[in-house]
Design a protein around this nucleic acid. Structure first.
Lengths: 112, 112
DNA sequence: TTGCGATACCTAGTTCTGTGAGGTATGTGT
DNA sequence: ACACATACCTCACAGAACTAGGTATCGCAA
């Protein structure tokens, strides 16, 4: 089980990164991240939806209700221009911290 | 400025990693991490001391008061055997999350 | 046709924890 | 004598994840 503080720290960059590859919706994001992490990251809905609402409130993502052929309502999110800037910042911060840890673990530094 | 959730997620592995290289004390840890991170990570005392107390309470680190030749009192911390196990776990979790992000960013995965 | 699991969204109360500010004390340099 | 760095600590506040709950639709099987 991955600790909650690591889940918290990675949720924003993960959402922005996945959405930078194309629009998606809450439920699908949970499954996509589980798949990408090889079942290591198991998000709960109670964690993700507030994150999506905050990111939208900050203007980093935008949402639109759509209805599938089957009639199921989904709220699709896409990244905004401002979100792209925020993603680069998140990435830069993540790599700064990762390289600090990596240095202690004898790893080669990652570049941006 | 690095966000507080990333500070929170990295504090435990950073403290354990630095202490795995030898004992140290609170004030020195703040400076050591600032140096290792090339001034990117600026810890506050109000954040670090509670972290150290929590880690000690969990038995991952042990402390001992020492007095330097100059007469200054310092609380030195060293990592315990249990802390070594926890560090390996923290490292494993960190790399799982990092590789998930790294995959989205077109990076090569890190190995343990 | 009834029931169940998967899909799909949401929120409220609780708990945790970093920030910012404050406190105490000692050594060093001017 | 005074300021600054060293060195420890705690508390009020605010932000945010987790648990647990709620609503609703679809597809499948008994």
């Amino acid at each position: 089980m991955i600790a909650k503080d690591l889940i918290a720290a990675s949720s924003r960059p993960l959402v922005l990164s996945v959405l930078s590859q194309g629009e998606s919706y809450g439920y699908a994001l949970i499954q996509r991240v589980r798949e990408l992490s090889k079942e290591r990251i198991e998000w709960t809905e109670g964690m993700l939806y507030p994150v999506l609402h905050r990111l939208e409130k900050e203007g980093l993502i935008e949402s639109e209700w759509k209805t599938s052929d089957a009639g199921r309502r989904r709220k699709y999110y896409r990244i905004s221009a401002e979100g792209g800037v925020a993603l680069r910042q998140e990435k830069d911060n993540w790599i700064a911290v990762h390289n600090t840890l990596g240095g202690l673990w004898g790893m080669k530094p990652c570049k941006i």
